[in-house]
Design a binder for these strands. Structure first.
Lengths: 152, 152
DNA sequence: TACACTATCTATAAAGT
DNA sequence: TACTTTATAGATAGTGT
């Protein structure tokens, strides 16, 4: 290329390195584009300068390729967090519903009994505000059974 | 390049397209390597042939660049599914625990009452096996409050 | 930094093996 | 399919502006 052979090693002169980077970068992007068009190939190319500036070429759906990875990770996670939230709303485990319903029924039944047997109201209120710390139990429906791929 | 000018459009002849792909691909990878060395730049390049075969060049830490995207997506999702499962075990919402405990207490209380008032056992068993379909309620602790990033 | 210029080097299209 | 050859198109290093 040009005047004189090129040694494949880091160009020490900062100015030359920068100029060469600029030239070769555009050449590389052009070639990436050419092969994608000529050969009907999907290409993703990203180049960071020493200073961290980003340049990229990508065919169609490769939009995320150029994104900084932390940013990519963050977006994926945010998206997933949202999906989680949505999915959870759909879970509404039978256990939870069952407990609520059973609870209501038991409470109703108990109230009736209390009336019958003249138990003090005080006792009922104790139950309502009971401070809970019993060992918890697993959900009947493990999340792993959620086919989250279908959500995405 | 070579004999005759190149039109920047898909090469229709399949053989020629494949040959050109092979040549240009290696040229592109070589250039990617050269700019990374000469200019001290981080480069990530991936190329898929029409048939989906993958070729890549990447400086050091860009290992994931070469992964097929579906594969990447799948891995992320599998990882997240696992995290979800783990996270859920930690949620154990107060509501769930509260309901279970309250339920136990109510049941116990009711049993006592039943003994007192001589209610048939049959009635209690009806409550236990009640078919539930009441409107469900949201979890007290929305998943969005889970800081899933810390898990990863 | 970004364009020109241009001598020279490199990549590669086409064709042969 | 994968090399080899070879003519030529294309890329670019060095140099100015």
């Amino acid at each position: 290329m040009g005047r004189g052979r090129v040694q494949l090693k880091r160009i020490e002169n900062k100015i030359n390195r920068q100029v060469t980077f600029s030239k070769r970068r555009s050449g590389l992007l052009k070639k990436a584009h050419e092969i994608s068009v000529l050969c009907d190939a999907d290409v993703g190319l990203i180049v960071f300068s020493t200073k961290g500036k980003l340049f990229e070429y990508a065919t169609d759906s490769w939009h995320y390729m150029g994104e900084d990875l932390d940013s990519l990770r963050l977006k994926e996670l945010q998206s997933l967090e949202h999906q989680l939230d949505t999915s959870l709303k759909h879970i509404r485990t039978r256990k939870d519903k069952a407990l609520q319903e059973q609870n209501n029924l038991l409470a109703k039944r108990l109230k009736e009994k209390e009336k019958e047997s003249s138990v003090t109201r005080n006792q009922w209120e104790q139950v309502q505000s009971h401070e809970l710390n019993s060992p918890s139990f697993g959900l009947r429906q493990p999340l792993s059974s959620l086919n989250i791929r279908n959500v995405i």
